[in-house]
Nucleic acid binder design. Structure first.
Lengths: 239, 239
DNA sequence: TGACTTAATGTACAAAGTACAATTACTCCC
DNA sequence: GGGAGTAATTGTACTTTGTACATTAAGTCA
């Protein structure tokens, strides 16, 4: 009755989108791998990768995602959203990744299935610092993501699609803008996430259905043009 | 550098929604577990469960879902859609499931992470027959799903939510109605999936944007009222 | 005070959503 | 053949939403 059963490694990978308001760019947080060793048979080229690592025994997937992100980047306190699992048997079998696996995994030939998470965050509220096998942490514009380790480019792509599909349900602006913001800031955010442009007047009409905006008794200061009205959010509306 | 690494079992679980047109019901396909053994220490109560089992070495998750469904129910040829992964460390540790695990799993204490799939299908086009550790296969109305093994009730719930969120994008009617159908049949389908009711006139207006309907030179026959116009689908529109 | 820059604002039109009821075409039964 | 029963068919008025589009206003700076 009992079949031979194979066991696998489970990992989590985190796609952290950082909103860079100054430059109105959407960036993704990557780690740069540490060189595994000096005397390797193959010359090893460190790669960029998503923060991700194996799940521990007795640890839920959600908890693992939070822990792994913290270990590799010292970033914590984010709400990570699970969106897809990748399990191609060959996803950790590519030549480019083998040296790294040999050095960092006790069982480098093991299959690894990964459960992926994403979140969107105001870039400046986190201060990533490399940890564990991350030599460095870097932000990269989502329009120019470099080649990544394993199947991580595919993961980033799927996360981006998913977040765009859900933007109007997710009230993402709530956590991505400062407490007081102008309508232009709100519009910039939506435009960069959706990679598009809107008409100002029409944008406000639409957005007011989803987000409850409160005009404040305060205006923008120090700009060399007509200062804009500041707003804050009331609450998240449900659909 | 290398951390102790734990390995896990990976399984797939399939939520097969069957559309029962006669009775306008939406049902879910369950297996009834075989009794593991006669001389068990605990009296074992067979449970209902989703069709699901461990993923094989060298097998993609998608392939595993297809294979497992076939082994347990002899159902094949369906397109399964991955929707979520469940990895609570305690999901296979409940008392009710332990006897079964002892008998069917070479490592019954192992943690099992499951990747879940769903699909919607016209109930009558498949003819489930039990296989492997399924003693029986049964359909159950999604409004009255019995207590299931492991965390399968939670999986069904999440699948139902997901399918409702996506119904207008998925063109599900295309595969769930016969080639020639009436507008009433189309409306019944949407109503049962969304568990709601629509106004006839308004429903047609709305649906014609998503589904391209072709009126045929044919009418319903053998009904004791005004016979309805038959339609077929042209193509799936993209959004 | 004038030049510069971006904010603020409204209207007409088109498209989509919604509420609502009378007539029609078939079958069955007498 | 006629009447009863049943569900199909059909349209309109109203509201809401989407969209295209350009002028005036309130600051800063030199």
């Amino acid at each position: 009755m009992k079949r031979t059963s194979f066991k696998n490694h489970i990992s989590v990978d985190c796609v952290i989108f950082g909103y860079n308001e100054e430059e109105n760019k959407l960036e993704v947080l990557l780690i740069e791998q540490k060189e595994p060793s000096q005397n390797s048979t193959h010359p090893y080229v460190p790669q960029f990768a998503l923060p991700g690592d194996l799940v521990n025994e007795e640890e839920s997937l959600d908890d693992a995602a939070v822990r792994v992100l913290k270990e590799l980047t010292h970033v914590e306190g984010l709400h990570l959203h699970q969106f897809f699992s990748f399990g191609d048997p060959l996803r950790v079998k590519q030549e480019k990744d083998i040296e790294w696996l040999k050095f960092y995994r006790s069982d480098p030939d093991a299959r690894v299935i990964t459960v992926s998470y994403y979140t969107l965050v105001r870039k400046e509220i986190i201060n990533p610092e490399p940890g564990s096998f991350a030599k460095n942490v870097v932000w990269r514009n989502i329009k120019r993501v470099p080649p990544l380790a394993f199947d991580h480019n595919q993961i980033v792509k799927k996360a981006t699609e998913d977040i765009r599909d859900r933007i109007y349900q997710n009230h993402i602006a709530y956590q991505l803008l400062p407490k007081k913001f102008t309508l232009r800031q709100l519009q910039n955010l939506y435009e960069v996430v959706l990679n598009t442009e809107f008409d100002k007047r029409n944008f406000v009409k639409r957005i007011k259905k989803d987000e409850e905006l409160i005009p404040l008794n305060e205006k923008q200061k120090g700009v060399m043009h007509k200062p804009a009205q500041l707003y804050s959010f009331k609450m998240k509306k449900k659909r």
